[in-house]
Design a binder for these strands. Structure first.
Lengths: 242, 242
DNA sequence: CCTACCAATCTGGTCTGACCAGATCAAGGC
DNA sequence: GCCTTGATCTGGTCAGACCAGATTGGTAGG
């Protein structure tokens, strides 16, 4: 969640998170008052309050009436939405986080694919083929397929007929793909990714659970390793991707 | 996420969701203007705007400047946070949703427990034993252990050393437990739940993956079945739990 | 010197009203 | 009938105000 908020609210959320990180605030610490934040950020208190409502809803902060604003979870310890928000904002990540995301994605996607093999409908297959074509069209036009990649993976999971799994994997996918946007710069990788996707659909169509499970494991792990290599390479010159 | 928002914001969020449901609004539909909502709900526009900021962040609505407020996802199609929010607000649920949540929980918790068997530390075991005692104390005092239940399950998952899995399961746990609050009214169920929890810790300590996996599957499925029975029983008199 | 109490101050919660600029739409001119 | 145009509506943002409870610092009493 938490993309494309109104500009002012979005920037205020960002500034607040940066404030927390910069001042090394931890769980339970108190933030400056709304009035001070509004002055510090150069926006009206109402704008600060909108940002705080978002942070509150994300369980990052807690506003105690007549008392103050307290950190509920450190930014590093927030919910998945917080992480997606951080990825959107281009903030840096603990390498451990990317490893955990990869592991979680493999767990959920593998089981989802197994279910998909059992339950996929003809409509699912049709949709997947269509997304496959769209994906191919994008890379033929030399575009960045990161959004199409998310859409495809989620459609694959949706074939499990479990909408909760889709919603669970959505933030994980969004995070990975934010990181992978640069990664898709390589034409070879785009092509390999498309081949993998085709193999997914074939396995699901053939109801071959074992093949699907093995494929997704390799696909995600390979991609994650490539991203990690790219990140380490990049971190020689820059600490984060802002 | 999205519990314990400030009272006004929370109720306004609720009213807005109810408005959407009541008027059968679908994706892309337009909501009344902020000014009209504020009048309709009897609160100031600033309060409406705070609620809309939350709904925006949850990707439920989209505010197009100078144009209007549009539904991005139908309430039924929102993210996990939306569902947790709905559960918090006591709104009704599609039975399919509870089934999907159960399935997703089993998938994630089973794999998390397997990892926990491999990676659990002494500190994890100490914490789990402590939570077990706290749980026992609560049911001895005839209290409702739903919060302790969430805490225990999440600690169990945390022993997998994968923080993303914890965050992924958090909303699923929160949802289940909101539903299960009534369910814990039965002393027999509270006792059985405690026994299950003890067995979890024993299996993780013994690093017995197969036992842990089987246990969690049975535990979650049994609980879900009981809740479903309770819900069907309750729905004879009331459609939802408001 | 320490404690207990009280008032000034600070804080979040909420409301009112205002201005801006772009989107929308209906009325009027061609 | 089509296009222009201006009134109107919308979200975005701001300033300032009041409330009531939490906090706190200083003072009076022990």
């Amino acid at each position: 969640m938490a993309s494309q908020l109104s500009s002012e609210t979005s920037t205020t959320v960002r500034k607040t998170l940066e404030f927390v990180q910069h001042h090394r605030l931890a769980k339970g610490d108190r933030l400056p008052s709304e009035r001070e934040l509004s002055e510090r950020f150069g926006v009206a208190r109402s704008s600060v309050r909108e940002a705080l409502a978002v942070l509150d809803a994300m369980r990052i902060t807690e506003r105690k009436p007549k008392s103050g604003i307290f950190l509920r979870n450190a930014v590093e310890d927030g919910g998945l939405d917080t992480l997606v928000l951080q990825a959107d904002l281009g903030l840096a990540f603990d390498p451990q986080v990317t490893r955990d995301v990869t592991e979680a994605r493999i767990i959920c996607e593998e089981q989802a694919l197994r279910l998909a093999c059992q339950r996929r409908t003809e409509a699912d297959l049709t949709k997947l083929r269509r997304l496959l074509d769209a994906y191919a069209a994008i890379i033929d036009a030399d575009g960045n397929p990161s959004d199409a990649d998310v859409e495809f993976h989620l459609a694959l999971v949706a074939a499990s007929q479990n909408r909760i799994l889709v919603r669970t994997l959505t933030p994980l996918m969004l995070m990975s793909t934010t990181w992978r946007r640069r990664y898709f710069d390589s034409a070879a990788i785009r092509r390999r990714s498309l081949d993998d996707h085709r193999a997914f659909v074939d396995a699901v169509e053939a109801r071959d659970e074992a093949a699907a499970a093995a494929l997704v494991k390799r696909h995600v792990q390979t991609a994650a390793a490539d991203v990690r290599a790219l990140a380490e390479q990049g971190s020689a010159t820059a600490t984060n991707t802002t």
